[in-house]
Amino acid sequence: MAMERAQVERTGGLPATVAREKLFRRILGRQPAAWLYLMPSLILFAVFVFYPLFKTIYLSFFLSDMKGLPTVFIGLDNYVRLFSSPEFIQSAGSTLLFVLYTVPATIIIALILALLANEKLKGIGFFRTIFSSSMGISVAASSVVWLFIFNPSAGILNRILSLFGLRGINWLADPNWALFSVSLTTIWLHLGFTFLILLGGLQNIDEHLYESANIEGAGYFYQLRRITLPMLSPTLFFVITVSMIDAFQTFGQIDLLTKGGPGNSTNLIVYSIYQKAFINFDFGSASSAVVVLFFCILLVTALQFKFGERKVHYQ
């Protein structure tokens, strides 16, 4: 027999080796090879996530020189200056406003699209693809397209307004409109992803629930309220969190559409950090803003978990 030849070789081994092996196992677990598989991730996370996170916090307590290197320890001075600077307060305010403009609108529109696209119709796949298409278009490409659309003279928006005899709007240069215009671009940009996730959530709902509701004679909106939304709540929960975090992190649209202007009205937090750090090379002050952003995002996630979880209906 082939396997008999593979004799039962190790017959227990010396007591010392056994003890050493046991110790080894106790420290590393049954399969020390695991660490080999985890090594690449661990090294990369350590170098590019954890180390920089702490380094950022460290930097936020220092003044920095022209190269951005830390020089003098100044404790919380960066934070004090940050919160007393009207510029930062404005930037934080714009960011919150921006979240308010974009997140609910994106989710509601995406939900409507998803509900429509979840109907069983011939050729629905085509519509689904179109609805999700903005996911495949980069921030840069879509910002440039919207830059064109918003163009005061050549852009289509003002053309349409003039058709109705209305005066053109300076979409991106008018401080009253700029944030709205950036939000519009962002909503369009995020619709694809949000739609895709919500559609997936809808499709995960058990068909039988609707069948039995139909038999009981429940109407469409009753079913929507009593079956679809509760069953979709985990997905909605996920989508809200992701959208808010995304909104906090907005950068590309600003850089291409307004560069933070006019009059700082669209200077969202990440863009202001970018300017501080990479235009002015004030790493210390930029780091303190990063830390504030980090805790804001942490807070959002924590709040979502605390309040979202309770209402969420998990299957």
């Binding site: 027999m1 396997m3 008999e4 593979a6 039962v8 070789e9 190790r10 017959t11 227990g12 081994g13 056994v18």
Partner: peptide
């Protein structure tokens, strides 16, 4: 014991099964 030999610590592939 497998085939009369102690087998407690043998890996599965060495147990002739």
């Amino acid at each position: 014991l497998i085939g009369g030999q102690p087998a407690n610590t043998l890996p599965p592939s060495k147990r002739s099964l």
